[in-house]
């Protein structure tokens, strides 16, 4: 954590609100990778949020947070997506995403593209203020402690960049995972080093991305754990995809929410079957 510069979180004061969280409506933005590749993360998110006492709704008309357009420099394209996200989600008390990078997109970047539209910028800011990454929300706002979850084995943790650097997600997942019976943490060398995913980066500069993820995989293998956990599907898919390409089937990549919601055994079982 030596190079972190903002320890203060904009949402520190939320401890007061967590007293009556059940009255708050939570909008879940599942994100496109969870929607297409890993729906179980979406269901795990609902389970955890409900366990934490939230009333969860999933707006049907959702798509993408706009990162591909934003990171490609397509401001107009980003705005088109942002209009739609803002309209869908601004009514909720909280907007939750099971991804640090998508949460950070809404929290930090929407306002960037509305510099010349003060009205929309205000709405984007309003949305940003109530948007959270799932794992940090559960701990920081809901004061949630998982109960009765069991999983035998060891895990190592990859801190995805946006979560770690822009949203201060670090302690929260570790704290929750420490309550899982039978699960033991193994440190990951370079735990907060980028895995080389970077959205469009990993296809645009596939070979650089490959060099980066290869190194990540070396570290993951060296950690010698059964599970690789994280809070962003993009990174997990990237690392898991490289592990598999290298013929390593010993390590299973799971989203932290899947473990905390007790879905891990089912997912592992399904994997084994295939």
């Amino acid at each position: 954590m030596s190079d972190k510069n903002n320890y203060t979180d904009a949402n520190q004061s939320n401890t007061i609100e967590c007293l009556n969280i059940s009255e708050k409506r939570v909008g879940l933005f599942v994100t496109c990778l969870v929607n297409t590749i890993r729906p179980s993360v979406g269901f795990a998110s609902i389970t955890l949020l409900e366990q934490a006492g939230c009333t969860v709704e999933v707006p049907a008309a959702q798509s993408c947070c706009g990162q591909p357009a934003f990171n490609s420099g397509d401001d107009e394209g980003t705005r088109q997506i942002a209009y739609q996200v803002i309209e869908q989600f601004e009514e909720f008390d909280y907007v939750i995403l099971p991804s640090g990078s998508c949460a950070s997109m809404i929290k930090n970047n929407f306002i960037e593209v509305f510099k010349e539209q003060p009205g929309w910028q205000a709405r984007a800011q309003h949305l940003a203020d109530r948007t959270h990454e799932l794992l940090s929300f559960l701990v920081d706002v809901c004061n949630f402690k998982p109960n009765g979850v069991e999983l035998d084995g060891t895990f190592t943790y990859h801190d995805s960049c946006s979560g770690y650097r822009s949203l201060n997600v670090y302690e929260q997942p570790r704290e929750m995972l420490s309550t899982v019976k039978g699960l033991e943490h193994k440190p990951l060398n370079g735990h907060s080093e980028c895995c080389g995913f970077g959205g469009t980066f990993c296809v645009k500069y596939s070979d650089i991305s490959n060099a980066i993820v290869s190194e990540k995989v070396e570290n993951v293998v060296a950690a010698d754990a059964d599970y690789l956990l994280g809070g962003d599907m993009g990174c997990l898919m990237n690392i898991a995809g490289k592990l598999n390409r290298e013929g390593n089937q010993k390590i299973t990549a799971l989203h932290t929410a899947e473990v905390l919601a007790g879905l891990a055994p089912k997912i592992i079982g399904a994997n084994d079957a295939s």
Partner: peptide, 27 residues
């Protein structure tokens, strides 16, 4: 291991097989 239009990805790594239907569909 390989799929048209995703060579940027599958050139260097595998793509995890998705579940049968989308989250929205299942939800």
């Amino acid at each position: 291991k390989y799929m048209p239009f995703t060579s940027g990805w599958t050139r260097n790594r595998d793509l995890i097989e998705p579940e049968t239907t989308t989250f929205m569909h299942q939800y």
